[in-house]
Write a protein that binds this DNA or RNA. Structure first.
Lengths: 163, 163
DNA sequence: TTTGCAAATGTTATAATGTTGCAAATTTCA
DNA sequence: TGAAATTTGCAACATTATAACATTTGCAAA
């Protein structure tokens, strides 16, 4: 049984989702932002998937819902959720994941398993600081930092070893 | 006069380009890879621009050249150049820049100015190591690391100060 | 209550980015 | 040379994202 904190560890994910939605409501209230039904549903869909979800994946599920949504609907909801710090966009995948540190100030770092597709968000203060130092050394004023690491997660790494 | 190593420092860029192409030829020879005219031309175009160039930007210039190229031509050339370590793809911009460390083993880190659009590639050993440590702590095997920092470069930062 | 405004959503179309598949040409090397 | 592998040309298509404008909704001030 894996001891890692990776999200693909077996767990009752419904609880994660419920918690994330509850947190989101709180955060939006604090921001005086409106977590409308569409926005909340999009957030829920993203959370229900451990793997990053593309905008059109979201769109497809909304269609199954009977919600006859067009792309702008989804992109707007995603923009909103990003602004509220509730989801992150993974640039190297054109896809979105729920933020596991919503509400807290943090610099995300993403471990993306190429094998199983799962993504783990970390906060790595050492990395943030090193990045900061590198930027300062160039007199560069960082605004948004994207750190995405593609590779193999522990579970998949073990598997290939056995092969 | 700026003392930074940033690429927007005034210089004769033709020399950079020529040097990059010469290096590329050497590297490809070492790799037994064929730097065909199209591939070389694409590399040249990317180098001539200090700002990241999208695939369709490249395509447009090729069209001006009279080269009636289709998207796959460009994407294939870009794939090749990436494999040879001659260009980098900036995921957050869907665009490409010439690699300023071609041939050397390195972990790139990109400073992207939102104001002027220029991009500086750095090697920051501290960052690489911190990233490595973070990955190891999760038993994750990194394969490809993407670090992109959007913000304001020194030149543009000064400008806004004056405003 | 209604009026008015800003925010949010709907709708259509289109832009921008990237890929597949196959045939023709070119290069490599035995 | 001639077979095999690589590269290119080409057409069609797939995916991702945005523009523009109309409409509706939520909310607060008159």
């Amino acid at each position: 049984m894996p001891t890692s904190a990776l999200p693909y560890r077996p767990h009752n994910h419904d609880i994660c989702v419920a918690q994330a939605l509850a947190d989101a409501r709180t955060i939006c209230q604090q921001h005086n932002a409106r977590l409308t039904p569409t926005r909340e549903r999009v957030l829920e869909l993203i959370w229900q998937s451990h793997k990053p979800l593309g905008a059109y994946d979201v769109l497809a599920v909304l269609a199954e819902d009977g919600h006859n949504a067009a792309p702008p609907t989804v992109y707007r909801a995603l923009d909103f959720l990003q602004q509220q710090g509730l989801v992150h966009r993974i640039a190297s995948l054109n896809a979105f994941v729920g933020c596991t540190h919503a509400g807290k100030r943090h610099n995300g770092l993403f471990l993306i398993c190429r094998d199983c597709g799962n993504v783990l968000e970390l906060t790595a203060p050492g990395v943030s600081q090193a990045v900061s130092e590198a930027a300062v050394a160039e007199a560069f004023k960082p605004d948004e930092v994207t750190i995405e690491i593609a590779g193999t997660c522990p579970a998949c790494h073990v598997d290939t070893h056995h092969a």
